[in-house]
Nucleic acid binder design. Sequence first.
RNA 1: GGCGGCAUAGCCAAGUGGCUAAGGCAGCGGUCUGCAAAACCGUUAUUCUCCGGUUCAAAUCCGGAUGCCGCCUCCA
Length: 490
Amino acid sequence: MPQKIYNTKTRKKETLQPVSEGAVGMYVCGITAYDVCHVGHARAAVVFDVVFRHLKACGYNVTYVKNFTDIDDKIIDRANREGVTIRDISERFIQMHDEDMAALNVLKPTVTPKATEHMPEMIALIKTLEEKGIAYAVDGDVYFSVKDYPPYGGLSGRNVDEMVSGARVDINDKKKNPLDFALWKKSKEGEPFWESPWGQGRPGWHIECSAMSRRYLGETFDIHGGGEDLIFPHHENEIAQSQAASGKPLANYWIHNGFVKINAEKMSKSLGNIFPVREIIRQYHPEVLRLFMLQSHYRSPVDYSDASLAEARTALVRGYTALQQMKETLSRVAVEVSVKLEKVHQTYLSKLSEMQEKFDAALDDDFNTAQALGCVFEAARLVNQITTAEKKMPAPVKKVILAAAKTGFAHFSDVLGVFLSDPDVFFDSDRTIEVAKRSLDSTKIEALIAERQKARQDKDWQRADEIRQELAAQHVVLKDAADKTVWSIE
RNA sequence: GGCGGCAUAGCCAAGUGGCUAAGGCAGCGGUCUGCAAAACCGUUAUUCUCCGGUUCAAAUCCGGAUGCCGCCUCCA
C-alpha cells in the first residue's frame, strides 16, 4: 500500500512520492542543547523514530538528519551562569540526550549535525540571500526581509499584513519590518563569535536548519518534521530562507507532532511542570513511556500523568506476558519434522497474517501507531490462546503457530520500538524499578515467599494465604506456577 | 484580533460515507486454581457534545451552536 502522510502544508493526507525513487530524505529539528530532555522531546523523538523505522521497513533507503542546536542564547546564558564554555554545556546535554534516546529505543539518525560545525554553509547561504536582495545587513546584523519574499506565510496559513497589525513582535530599530528575522547576529561583548563578511557574530536559529538540510539532503527533499510549535515561525522562516535562495521547494511533506500536556496544561518552566526523561525512566521502564506515546495518534495532544503511565505499564506487561509464554512454550516443545495442520490451526495462521497486514496498513495510513498497537494486542491474545487456553492443541502444532507469531512480533517490535527486550529481562527490570520506587526489600519478600512455599507443601493453606496477604499489603502479587512462585509489583 | 485543532463507553484511545464502532485500563459473570494471580471465554457505547442540512445510507460530508486546547514571543 502506498504511504500516506498528513502534510501540514496542504492540511491533507497525501501519498508519499519521494524525490528519488526508493529513497527518502528526512530532516527533523532536534534539540537546543542547554538542558536535559523532557517528555515533549521524547515524544517528538519517538514519533519520528517510528516514521524512520516504518519507512525503512517499507524498503526505502532513508537518510534521516536530526540536528543539534549548539549555539544559542540559552546555551550562552547557562555557560555564563556555570562559568564554563558553551561547548561544555552543549556537549554535556548532547551526551545526556543520546543516553535518553538510547534508553527509549530511539535509533540514531543517519546524520546528527551540529550548528557550530556548519558555519561556512550558513554564511554562504546568508550571502546568497544578501546578493539576491532578500537579506540586508545593518550594523553587523543581517536580517531576512519578509516583504521581499511574497510567499511568506504559506506553511502556517498566515497573512503578512495581519501579522503586522497583530503586532506581537519584538521592537527592534534595526529591522526594516517588524516581521523580519535575524540570519546573523553581531556578537556582544564576551559572547562566542565566528568571523563573517559582516564581522564577528553568530548565526540566527532558523538559518542553521536551512544550511544543514541543504548540505545533507539537497535543495529539495522529502520530509521535514518537528513539533507543532515549530510551524511558526521556525519552519516558515526556514522555507523562506531556503526557497528564496534556491528557488525550489524545501521539503515536499511537512510532519508535525502534537504536544505533551500535563494535566491539560502546557508544559513550561514557569508552571514548573517539566518532566525530564531521565526522571521518568527511574519510575517506569523506558518502554512504558514509549508505549504511552504510541497509544495515541502523533498529531493529537497527549495528557501526561502518572496514572496514564501506570496504565501503559499494565498494557506493556500484558504484551510481555504473552511473549514470555510464547518463549517458554517454544523452548519446551521439540521440533517435529512434519506437522499436520488442521483447518482450525490454519485459521490461527491466517488470523496472524491478517494482523500483520493490518499493522502495516495502519502505519501506511499516516503512521497510525494506535491502530497498529491494536493489532499487536490482538496478536498477543492469539498467542495467549495458543499457549494456555488451547490445551487440546498438539504441541508441534503450537510450535508452528507460535513460530509464526514470533516472526510477526519481531516485525511489530522492530517498527514500533517496543517489546524489544527479552521478556524475562523486562520483568526483572520492571520489578527492580517498582521495588525501588516503593522502597521495598526484595530479600525479605523472597524470604517470605520461600516460607510460603514450605507452608504450601505442608498444605498449610492458612499460613500460605496469610503471607500472601502480608505481601499484597506491600503491593506484591504472587503467581503460583507448578514448580515455583513468581512475584511482581501490582 | 488573526490562524489552526479537538469533542467517540466509567477512564485512555482508533475509526473520517455503508460489513458486528479496533485496542488498552477499570467493572461484572464464567473456566482454570487448594484459594489466588495471570490467561482464556462471555459481558459492558442501538450510539459517537448539541441543533439543522446533504445522501438510499453519516460518528464520518456541509452549516450553525456550545465547550476545551494550541500557535501568533524561546519552545519538541
